[in-house]
């Protein structure tokens, strides 16, 4: 329980500081928003209040949590990069799918994405690769032609 509390304090501190940074940027951006003649408040008013609130509450959270943060607590925060690698790879693949969707087209992109992801997440086995190819192929064709023929929805 004690460990969990310490861990939470570190997370809170990081989140609080992040909010302060985002809030400051947002406040700066809000104060540069053009105003118009026919309304008193203007487009920057509420964003200014919101971002101001973020800065204040972010500071509050950081200060409140900073008290229980020490070196030991920081040491408890670790990020398991190796265990997360497949997931990260799949996310990158997904981004690649989005980036190339318009040039490569949906059919190839989606098929490659599903096949590769299944393979990666499944632990690079031969069986998983086959499963990925089968699932990816069927799914891609189903989605593409289902949307196109039944609903007249064009995918790139």
């Amino acid at each position: 329980m004690e460990a969990r509390k310490r861990q939470k304090a570190v997370l809170d501190l990081i989140f609080g500081l992040a909010c302060v940074v985002v809030g400051c940027l947002a406040f700066y951006a809000s104060s540069n928003v053009r105003t118009s003649a026919f309304e008193r408040l203007g487009a920057g008013f509420i964003p200014k209040i919101v971002s101001g609130g973020m800065v204040v509450l972010g500071l509050w959270l950081s200060i409140a949590s900073a008290r229980s943060v020490d070196r030991k607590a920081i040491g408890m925060i670790s990020f398991d990069i190796k265990g997360n690698l497949p997931v990260i790879a799949v996310l990158l693949l997904f981004a690649a799918l989005a980036a190339t969707l318009e040039t490569v087209g949906f059919r190839i992109g989606a098929f490659a994405f599903v096949a590769l992801s299944v393979w990666i997440l499944g632990g690079f086995g031969r069986r998983e690769l086959l499963q990925g190819i089968v699932v990816g192929g069927i799914l891609t064709l189903m989605v593409y032609y289902g949307l196109k023929e039944l609903l007249r929805l064009m995918l790139p």
Binding site: V90, F94, L97, A98, L101, A110, F113, V114, S117, V118, L121, G122, G123, E128, Q131, G132, V135, G136, L139, T140, V143, L147, L155
Partner: peptide
């Protein structure tokens, strides 16, 4: 899950 996850992601993209 290793099959389910990519399938869901693809549906999300679509």
């Amino acid at each position: 899950v290793y099959i389910l996850a990519p399938v869901i992601l693809l549906f999300c993209a679509v």
